[in-house]
Amino acid sequence: MKRLVFLLVALPLCAAAQDAKKAIEKYQQMLSEGSPAELWELEGETLWKKPQGPKNASLEKCDLGLGAGKVEGAYARLPRWFKDTDKVQDLESRLLTCMTGLQGRSLKDATARLFGNADRPSEMEYLVAYIVGQSRGHKMAAPVGHAKERASYELGKKIFFYRAGAWDFSCASCHGEADKRIRMQDLPVLSEPAGAQKAYTSWPAYRVSNSQLKTMQWRINDCYRQMRFPEPEFASEATIALTHYLAVTAAGAPYRGPGTKR
């Protein structure tokens, strides 16, 4: 009898939750059909081709892993090991390499404004939008063939499950098991291919609620803020390794970004 009562109460609640989920999915679909992220892509392409810095050079000869100037499909194969720097680099850290190398800018200049705001987005955000847009439809395939790539992946995995900070959180505290959410946002299980594929292929993304395009480095930075960790350094070995772990876990899924979020 007790069980019957429970069922009667639970059924309408489930239906309501299902309706809410459907409504959210519809909203997400509407957002992605006309995403201002496309405006960031246009601006980013202009910046990519604009001569800047002491060498008055554009970034058009930047090697994102597929050869100098090859942008199409490059993001889907990042992070990866680069011979010239002997480091595993993600998109943002590679862009910094090109800004300092090709354009002759100081690291201080290139990193002066990594996160923009709605009134004045950053150069990094524009460039990232353009480059990731050139990988739409490409299957995610971050390599792990090189010893440094394997080490980076393993480090990222370790960081993902490493609990610390004021709340003793790890990435896995929120993204390690199914059916967790923050308010109405379902949290993907990023240690499983299905969850990682769904989430990772929709980042970087335009946030409608603050009218900004957010990079993957920002996403990780803000996760650390939410976990009350010290702020991680932009494009550090740790943030790149974590990105690498997510990228490899998401392998095989076609890239769908830059995405659009609530």
């Binding site: 006309g34 995403s35 201002p36 496309e38 405006l39």
Partner: peptide, 8 residues
């Protein structure tokens, strides 16, 4: 027609 505009 679908059009995107950049405006504050």
């Amino acid at each position: 027609v679908r059009v995107l505009m950049t405006h504050p």
